[in-house]
């Protein structure tokens, strides 16, 4: 192929320049503003960051966030893997119906879903009253205002995100490879652990990464289902911005989340090509 002439390249840049300016002004600008705030408010320096090591409450919030995110990611990915596995092995009609249901839950607003859980899981909610009626429990279980409720809500929201990348990687597995494994004497279990799982690993990693990153910034579900008892980073930032007006601390936490996600992506890129994880063209 011929190289693109230099002047043509320049003309192209002029065409996309408005968008570059737009992205710069509306996206990168605010990010740099936040980074700047985190080292300049209330006084210039790294004071906001050293708070991380001195403040008990900050430490507790970060620990809660991390714990909830890890547990939620683990559960979502395992559920997502099972659902994707069932979908791949279902007949085509059934698979399309399952995909439809999955996408419907994608389109329902997180707010609507969270309030639905509120109805279901409350002290007098459907779940508790049903369990009481059939006599399994005598006292209502407290599903809300604790981590259990937050986890139920978050897992429910995240499962479709986990299913899709896993489904894509499972669909690309050549069925003959699995037949080959059986013809070579491997049992179903051996075939799964030694062939199927490794071949769907890229989807699994992508799903875990996606779910974990989205989890880190979760606001609505912990706020509503946690009822202020399960304080996670996003909600804490909102409190700092809107209530206590400590913008420096808020900016520092926001920057921390940003760097956390970037570090995660970097770490992952050292083990595998990110383009394969996110379904890009295979080299």
């Amino acid at each position: 192929m011929r190289a693109i002439p230099r002047h043509a390249l320049n003309a192209g840049w002029i065409l996309v320049l408005p968008f570059v300016v737009l992205v710069g002004a509306l996206f990168l600008g605010p990010i740099f503003n936040i980074l700047w705030l985190s080292v300049s408010d209330p006084t210039p320096g790294l004071g906001n960051y050293t708070e991380l090591f001195t403040s008990d409450s900050l430490g507790r919030i970060l620990w809660t966030t991390l714990r909830v995110c890890v547990i939620c990611t683990a559960i979502s990915v395992v559920l997502g893997y099972s659902i994707a596995y069932a979908m791949v092995h279902a007949a085509e009609g059934t698979r399309n119906k399952m995909l439809g249901l999955l996408l419907v839950s994608f389109w329902i607003s997180v707010l609507v879903r969270t309030f639905s859980w509120l109805m279901l899981l409350g002290r007098n909610g459907v779940v508790n009253s049903t369990l009481e009626t059939i006599g399994i429990i005598s006292e209502p279980i407290s599903f809300m205002r604790n981590e259990l409720g937050v986890l139920i809500g978050m897992v429910h929201y995240m499962v479709p995100y986990a299913v899709l990348p896993i489904l894509a990687s499972m669909q690309s597995i050549d069925g003959r490879v699995l037949q080959a494994s059986r013809s070579l004497g491997a049992t179903g279990t051996q075939t799964f652990w030694r062939v199927y799982l490794p071949l769907s690993r890229a989807g699994l990693v992508a799903a875990a990464l996606l779910v974990f990153i989205i989890n880190l910034g979760f606001y609505v579900i912990p706020a509503v289902l946690g009822g202020g008892k399960v304080l996670m980073v996003a909600e804490y930032i909102s409190v700092q911005v809107l209530v206590t007006l400590q913008w420096g601390t808020a900016a520092m936490l926001a920057a921390l989340l940003l760097f956390g996600v970037l570090a995660l992506l970097f770490l992952m890129s050292r083990f595998m090509k990110l383009s394969t994880v996110f379904g890009g063209a295979r080299a």
């Binding site: 050549d174 080959a180 494994s181 013809s183 491997a186 049992t187």
Partner: peptide
């Protein structure tokens, strides 16, 4: 898997995530 027959598939169906050695060792290691 109980028949113990060897089979060579159309398109070979090698395990893409294993080296040549691991591919050949597979029936023995299972």
């Amino acid at each position: 898997e109980k028949r113990n027959f060897g089979m060579v598939f159309q398109g070979y169906a090698l395990f893409p995530h294993m080296t040549v050695r691991d591919n050949i060792a597979y029936p023995l290691s299972v």
